[in-house]
Design a protein around this nucleic acid. Structure first.
Lengths: 224, 224, 224, 224
DNA sequence: AATGAATGAGAGTTCATTCAT
DNA sequence: AATGAATGAACTCTCATTCAT
């Protein structure tokens, strides 16, 4: 019943900055749970403990709200990723491992963020779709950078070009995303463990490719 | 432009079987382009060249329509996959390669089918969500089966258990899905080529894991 | 599977007359259960074992179908009523009793008919509404006639005029209709018994009015 | 015709309480005129001078709207009835007379309310049907109570049991309802007058039954 | 005599968005 | 800073009705 104090928890006369974050917090949850279209501004406002007009005052539109979510969560992910990768230290494979590890940890801990970033289907407006694409590209670039650096140093070879790194990054991120689902079915698995398994599965292959040991399907004609 | 004649080709008085397939054809396209919620039955009906009530007469509801799409495309994918894998012949790695190859070919050729199957966000009703989950599980099981068979034979070892196979299957499908996006940015790449690259990246790693050559991040403490 | 014979029960190649009655039979049931608007021609056609176009071919429209039901059931009721009243024989009160008795028996046995005749709310089109009103008026006229005849003879008095008879008829039919509901809550009660009770409640009052013994609320002013 | 000013009387920015009543007012009219199914929320909204979403915001659904109407009108009727019956004072027949009088007055004055309460056909959903049944039962209970009290006191006899009272109540309410129609054809008749006539018709009969003067159809066998 | 295929029109319902306070 | 009141537009779904065979 107190109106001005801090007793109420979160209500009345909160400065804009703070309110905005509250709204985005809730919105990420709801967008993740329902998807962009099925999410309703009504629900978000109610869960945020404010009225709808506030949402529009601060975030302009449903689209604006979603974009704000997207940006914030993308930033968070990139930050987590970079921090870990840099802290990973010397050897390139260690850096890649640290990066992937951070990635899994982030996704495991902030499922909603990841869902908002990556699992929004093609149902979005032009503006949003391109923002999502941007966010994805940013993540890819991080991973690709890691791969590139790492491998370029690791083997003497420089046969790995931009395209290759991008290819590997896509494969890694896709695998990681999918393993996110696998993790929900295996609650015992730590992000650390999953990272390790994935590293084992791909790292050698990446290196081996560079060394020229290319596998080719033997003794069989084109399946077409 | 003729209205009552036979000139129009696809119009009036089409038997149910055929119409149903027409509707599903269109629906897959639209669901893929817009996502479940953003897709409107109106648009589907119009593109199918019929009126809305026909859609409801034959498919019962938007949900029923989506489920029909889901089932048909899942069947198609599994069929394509199985056919190729069996045709792949003797060596396990060849079979896996053939399966993956079929997978990429399918996804590349029937993008819409794949999007409907795999890219529907969490915005779905209970019934649909579980149908989607079923479809995904079916695909996973195919891949996991291939991996399992293959590797079990390949190395003498039987250290690969159910969980491992499932892990690998998730990683592979995720990577493949993501590489699907990569392919749209690199139109020159054939599904064949992508398959080969992925195989190279992964196959050796899978084998190596079995042989006990496990990579572990050296000389570094827990990043936490 | 026999097509032309009588084996199938009711199907294929039934002459128009018969089909029409089948349809009306079903329609009365459905209209009674659902009400005019909530009843769907689809359901009626299906229950009648034929296709919708037949319904339209024979009865023209939903409205036409309902009118046909209305007419047939009204005729049936009037017939049952008249027959009984005439068979009731000499004394006027016996004739009234016999008429009411027939009425209750009919309503108890053909609930659907009565519901269609009397319980269709005001939700009907002009045409139908007036047909329903006609049917109701016909029933009222029967009862009013009975009352009139009866009482006119019974007492020497002729103080009962048209209006009075109509008043009594309305009261009687209304009471009877309502007692129909009461009967569903008391399954043990026979139509005969209900008739007797109602007669007892009303007959004397009717006579007494004629004899001038008019009751007037004593010693109290108008509540207005 | 002014749009934004205060001239319009009933428009923009009305507090919820008031709007709700306005909506229910209109809804009662429309439901009475058209019946539940034929009534359209569109029409109700338009007549209420608001947009459809307001109706749904305040009353949840068409069903909810109808239930609200039902409850309010039932309350009104019961209130009118009780008030009058209590004010009727001492003698039981006076109380019954007063009650019936109030009933007729209410029905004559609030035809729509009564139609909504009593004339909705069987076309309703489970929830509504039972609400209607409840409302009807409440009215019946009122009348039955009056009858019971009254007669129990009036004659020394206690031969009237629950069932009898209920029987009489049904007959009375049914008669009254039907006389409602009769009244529309005889505009000169006041509710007072109708009540008096009905009382004369039934009161004596009720008493006589108690005194044992039971009428039985003489000298005739079962009409069957 | 009979029907599968097809639709125009309209119902209830919801949502993102704004206005007035 | 904040909100109760209000709506245009769109969506899913149903129904009486007809056409072509």
């Amino acid at each position: 019943m107190t109106v001005n104090g801090r007793t109420e928890g979160r209500r009345r006369r909160v400065p804009r900055q703070e309110r905005e974050q509250q709204i985005i917090d809730v919105a990420v949850t709801v967008f993740a749970k329902r998807g962009y279209h099925a999410a309703s501004v009504d629900e978000i406002a109610e869960l945020a403990g404010i009225s709808k007009p506030m949402v529009y005052l601060y975030l302009d539109s449903k689209e604006g709200l979603f974009l704000a979510c997207l940006r914030r969560e993308a930033d968070r992910l990139v930050a987590a990723f970079q921090g870990a990768a840099q802290a990973g230290g010397g050897a390139p494979e260690l850096r890649l491992h640290a990066g992937l590890s951070a990635f899994f940890a982030f996704v495991a801990e902030h499922r909603d963020s990841w869902v908002v970033l990556h699992r929004q289907a093609s149902e979005l407006s032009e503006a949003i779709a391109s923002a999502v694409a941007d966010a994805r590209r940013a993540v890819m670039a991080q991973v690709a950078g890691l791969v590139w650096d790492g491998i370029a140093e690791s083997a003497g070879g420089a046969r790995l070009d931009d395209e290759d790194a991008d290819f590997v990054a896509h494969a890694l991120v896709g695998a990681a995303d999918s393993l996110t689902d696998w993790m929900s079915g295996h609650p015992g698995q730590s992000p650390e463990g999953v990272t390790l398994r994935l590293m084992n599965m791909v790292w050698v292959g990446m290196g081996r490719v560079l060394e020229g040991e290319v596998w080719v399907p033997a003794e069989r004609s084109d399946p077409t």
